[in-house]
Amino acid sequence: MLLAFASAVTLVSVAGAHAFLDHATPAVGSAVHASPGDLKLWFTQELEPAFSTVRVLDKSGTRVDKGNPKVDGADRTLLSVSLPRLEPGTYRVVWRVLSVDTHVTEGDFTFDVAP
């Protein structure tokens, strides 16, 4: 039965994916040692650019990204935003996206910039 379950999972994995965050740079919950030039989020489904956005907030809740979130034209699963030089500290990423299947998903996570 477990073998059948594993086989079924493998088969349906190629069918599609939730409009969930697949991975990010900086990674979810990670600590980086240098200020990243941008934040990149890869989702498991293509996004509608007009209704997909991301913000990066510092510990006080002030928005610190450059306010230019965009969905990549060649890879519509990629949402990115440019960052200024970030001081050491904890930063919160807040995203909200509309997938091509019309569902809205949202989420947040933190990453640290180490001294």
Partner: peptide
Amino acid sequence: LQAFVQDVGLREPFNR
């Protein structure tokens, strides 16, 4: 865990 807390490196199919 992967998307909102910490990316611990799980990939398909375990990350679902």
